[in-house]
């Protein structure tokens, strides 16, 4: 792992220059972190979506039940 700048002077021969980004050697580690972050996002989305829809569906069912109690003739029809 290299913690000094990858490029210390632009006066070098460009044909000898490879990577331009800093911290060459950390790519695999950062790739794994990126994947973990994404997996967390997807798990969060599956869970939050299920919870949200369960809650909203239950709330909507209650609304319908309340309306049915307030206006029984309308719902009987």
């Amino acid at each position: 792992m290299n913690f000094t700048p990858t490029i210390e002077a632009w006066s070098r021969n460009p044909q000898d220059t490879g990577p331009l980004y800093p911290f060459v050697g950390t790519e695999l580690f950062l790739s794994v972190l990126c994947l973990i972050f994404f997996l967390i996002f997807m798990v969060w989305k599956f869970r939050s979506e299920r919870n949200t829809y369960d809650h909203q569906a239950s709330s909507l069912r209650n609304d319908v039940r309340d309306k049915a109690e307030d206006f029984p003739s309308h719902f009987d029809a």
């Binding site: 021969n13 460009p14 044909q15 000898d16 220059t17 490879g18 990577p19 331009l20 790519e27 695999l28």
Partner: peptide
């Protein structure tokens, strides 16, 4: 994905 060529690179060694 971890290749040095999946990033800015000048094409040298």
């Amino acid at each position: 994905p971890w290749s040095e060529l999946m990033a800015p690179h000048l094409g040298g060694s």
